[in-house]
Each structure stands twice: as C-alpha cells, then as structure tokens.
Design a protein around this nucleic acid. Structure first.
Lengths: 226, 226
DNA sequence: CGGGGCGTTGAACGTGCGTTTAGGCTTTGA
DNA sequence: TCAAAGCCTAAACGCACGTTCAACGCCCCG
C-alpha cells in the first residue's frame, strides 16, 4: 500500500512508516465501520498489535485526533477549490480519486460522530461555498443574495447533511468501490430535482419571501430594531 | 410524568406501567445521549434495575425496537400531515409540543444511527413530502416538477439531512428546552436563504438544466433509451 | 391460612474494551 | 563484541457492558 507524503504532525522517526500505516488503516476502518471499532481491529488491519497503536498515538482519542488532522490537511492541501460545483461536490470529487476515497468516507463518518473536526470541517465547507457562490455571482451565473453568508451556510449544510443522511441510511460499505458506485447513483437521483430547484425555484410567486421580508423588517411584537 | 395512551406492542399486564416508564425513559435518554448509554442508566432513569429492563424487553435491541415502534406510531398517529410546510417542519412542529419533544429528538438520533426505523422514517417523510408538494402544485402555489417523486425525495433528504447534521454538530443537549431553543435558532438562520432559493432559484438562467435534460435524453455514449 | 404466580432485585458471569507493563527482538554505534 | 536504544509483542489489569439467575416480597385466589 502506497502511503502519502503528508506527515501532518507524525513523529519523525524510524517507526514513522508503521505509524503512517496504522493511521491509514484507522482512516479506512473508521470510515467503513464507524468509530466503535476497537484498537485491536485497527492494529490487525495495519499488521500490528493494539499496544503499538497506543505506543505511537497515546490513546484511542490520540489516534482519532491524528486521523482528523491528516484528513483535514489532505482536504485543505488538495486544491479542491478548483471545482465549479457546490460543497457536496468536494466529497464526491474526493471519492472519485482512488487514493482519497477513504478520506472522503472518513470525513463523513467524522461529521456523523461530531466533535472538533466535524465543526472545523463544516466551517471550511461553508467558507468554500461562500467563495464559490460569490465567484458565481461575480461571473453573472448566480443570483445575488440578500445575505450571502447565510446562503452559503444554508447550501453547505443542506448538501453535506443530505450526504450524511445517506451514509446513515446505507450503514455498511464492505468495499470502497461500493461507496463510489452508490455515490454516483445518489448523484443521478439528485441531479434533476436539484437543477430544477436551482434553475426555476419552487414557489410560483414571491409572496412567501416578501411576507418574510416584511416580517423581519417590522416584527409584529417585541424588541425594536437597533 | 404523564404517559401516552398508545401502547404500540407492549404487553398488556400489571407491569405495563413499569414497561411504559422504562420505554419513555429510554426514549428520553437515547434521544439526549445516543444509543451508547447502558441499560443500567436507562433503568435508573425509570427507577428500576437493568434486570427488569431485560425482563420486559428481552434484550437491549428489544428495547430499541420497542422505542422505535412507539416513536413511529406516535409520528404516524399524530396528524402531522396537516402542516403546510416541508418534511423538516414535522420535526420542528413535533418538538414544539412539550410532550413530543423527546420523540423528535429520538427520531433524529435514530436517523443518525441508521437501521430499520431510520429507513422507514425517511420513506414516510418522502411520501408525506410528495403529498404536500402535489397539493401545493394543485393549488397553484408550487411549480410542477418533471419528476415529482424524485423532487420529493430530494427535498425530504435535504431537509432531514441538514437537521441531522445540525444535531451531530451540537452533540449534547443537557436540557430538552435547549433542543427547542436551538431549533428555533436554526430556523431563523435558514429562513431567508431557503425562501430566496424557493422563490427565486439560484441560477440566473436555465442553461444548466437544459444541458442536463439534453444529456439524459441523448447520452453521449453507451446504452440506448428503451 | 397457605401457596403459587408475578414483579422486582442484586449479585454474578463472560466478554470485549482501552490501557499498562514487562520483556523480547533487531538494529546501531563505539 | 558488547551494550544501549529503538520497535514491537504478549499477557494482564480494571472496567463497563449485556445478560443470566436465584431469591425475595407481595398480592390474589383458594
């Protein structure tokens, strides 16, 4: 198994190869089966014992943090910003690259479990989405929003959330190829309604929006606007 | 604590009250802390020991099934279909009713964990969404879709998925009121971009949609249309 | 009054977890 | 050649879990 060049906070010793092997095996296992799997199983995947895992990473949480840091560094370093699609496309695009599919799966699993990486990950997704959207607006492809940041957060949350839900509903991927295959299938199911919604909207008129705008400018009762 | 009338597959004996108490406590606990909590903690919340929990429900999975069945029966029996909003509104609406807030939280937690209830739950959500949408189309409020079923699935998945992601990112609700409060906050954040998207769309023109429609009618290579 | 069923407990068992620790094995340097 | 340093293993510990089981109180029925 070819391991990546990025070290991402790993100790620079002779056992670095083993540590990387453990970390890669953990990303693969955690992504496939969730974070409930034991250290013995992770170690077995890497061809070592549980003791060695703890020797390098201190604790199970330490291993988790190392995986998080590595995954985040890959997502950050890979120039995924070059895409023209939304934030969910990042995951799909990541999964299409053979080597990075486990990382995409791990990221989703991490989002499912919550924690620090999940929050940081979503914040980056929102920031990237804002960038895409503003670029699209500047190019005249996308309509401007009254609150671009909120719109970016909304679209990123919707996209990643639906991906997350889909992972939860398809609990086990026994092969990493299944992940890619089912992801493409999901994409096919989504494409038409998404394009419809983005191109034509859903409501036939703007009364709902206008009523809301009236409401936020002049709430019926309570605190005055500063 | 007042317990509901719905029995949903519980044994009709003298110990029914205790079984209901255990089941309600389990729904509350599982919803708040996830399904990793032990039977002793659930039992303690209900004022009984772990042994009695297993006496009534056979195993931990049996308790989980009983909770699932009850939650699904409540969601089904309550006339939540009367809402005019989307499928995510069901959860929000459910959470607004004091008594049903734990049930809404449990449903989300179940969606997070996957399994049978999760799939059944989503299928019902999609079916309900289709009903709402078609009603809206019939009333002339919503635009018709080229594939109404796919659109319903898409919107339901997006809505529930974003809710699920939000729960994952806010890992612990120590009070059930926090859940309601944060849910309203989420609603406020979402309202404007959602209404914008639904009213005005995102793309300035239809080229993306038209290109996709051209593509699906005449794919560049491979299988012919039947 | 007596006994049998029911609801309930508390202790025990086996298992698997994360973690610790002692000690081999291999490599390296003087 | 010997010793030190590192990598790595295997066994064990404590713990919490789900689960089992024998026994205890209690109420109802005969």
């Amino acid at each position: 198994m070819r391991s990546s060049d990025v070290s991402a906070g790993l100790a620079e010793g002779a056992g670095q190869a083993a540590a990387e092997r453990i970390r890669d095996a953990a990303i693969l296992r955690y992504g496939r089966d969730g974070f409930a799997v034991g250290l013995r199983a992770v170690g077995a995947d890497a061809g070592v014992t549980a003791g060695l895992v703890l020797h390098y990473f201190g604790s199970k949480e330490g291993l988790r943090r190392a995986c998080d840091a590595y995954v985040l560094s890959v997502i950050r370093s890979e120039k995924l910003k070059a895409t023209t699609g939304g934030p969910a496309v990042v995951i799909a695009q990541l999964a299409e690259v053979e080597e990075y599919a486990p990382i995409a799966l791990y990221a989703l699993r991490s989002l499912q479990a919550g924690g620090e990486l999940a929050i940081e990950f979503m914040e980056q997704m929102c920031a990237d989405a804002l960038e895409y959207l503003e670029a699209g607006v500047a190019q005249g492809l996308l309509k401007p929003s009254r609150d671009p940041v909120a719109r970016a957060r909304y679209l990123a949350t919707q996209a990643m959330g639906s991906l997350l839900l889909w992972v939860s509903l398809h609990p086990e991927f026994h092969e990493i190829d299944d992940f890619r295959k089912e992801l493409r299938q999901l994409w096919d199911e989504i494409a038409l309604p998404a394009l419809e919604l983005f191109s034509e909207g859903l409501f036939v008129d703007r009364t709902m929006l206008d009523e809301y705008l009236m409401y936020v400018c002049d709430p019926p009762a309570g605190d005055a606007k500063p």
